[in-house]
Simulated scan of single mutants.
Amino acid sequence: MKPYQTVPIAECHEPLVQIPDHFFKINPHPYIALGAPYGDQSPFFVRQGILERLQKSQIYLQTLHPNYQIAIFDAYRPIPVQQFMVDYSFAQLAASKGLPIDNLTELQKDLLMTEVIKFWAVPSNDPQMPPPHSTGAAIDVTLFNAELNTELLNMGSPIDEISDRSLPDYFASSSHPQAFAFHRDRQLLNAVMTHSGFARHPNEWWHFSYGDQLWAWISNKNLAIYGRANSAC
Rank of each mutant, 00 (worst) to 15 (best):
M1P: 00
K2Y: 06
I9H: 01
I9M: 02
I9A: 08
C12K: 10
Q18V: 12
H22T: 15
F23T: 04
P28W: 15
Y31Q: 08
L34F: 14
P37Y: 09
G39Y: 07
Q41E: 13
F45Y: 15
R47W: 13
Q48V: 04
L51Q: 05
E52Q: 11
K56Q: 15
S57N: 06
I59E: 15
Q62M: 09
Y68K: 04
Y68Q: 06
Y68A: 10
I70E: 03
A71C: 12
I72Y: 10
D74F: 14
P78K: 03
P78G: 11
Q82C: 15
Q83L: 15
S89Q: 07
F90M: 11
F90A: 12
F90L: 11
L93H: 10
A94Q: 02
A94L: 04
A95P: 00
S96L: 03
K97Q: 15
P100T: 06
I101W: 02
N103F: 05
L107E: 14
Q108F: 00
K109P: 00
L112G: 06
L112N: 02
T114E: 12
T114H: 10
E115Q: 09
A121H: 06
D126W: 03
P130R: 02
P132H: 12
H133L: 13
T135S: 08
G136I: 06
A138Q: 01
A138R: 00
I139A: 04
D140A: 13
L143E: 07
L143W: 08
F144Q: 05
T150D: 15
N154I: 06
N154G: 03
M155H: 01
S157M: 05
S157G: 04
E161R: 01
E161S: 08
R165P: 01
S166A: 14
P168T: 07
F171W: 07
A172Y: 03
Q178V: 06
Q178G: 05
A191M: 05
M193I: 06
F198V: 03
A199W: 09
A199R: 07
H201R: 04
H201T: 09
H201I: 10
N203L: 12
E204G: 11
W205Q: 12
H207G: 14
S209L: 10
S209G: 14
Y210C: 11
G211A: 12
A216R: 00
A216G: 06
W217F: 15
W217L: 08
I218R: 03
I218D: 07
S219A: 15
S219K: 09
N222I: 08
A224E: 02
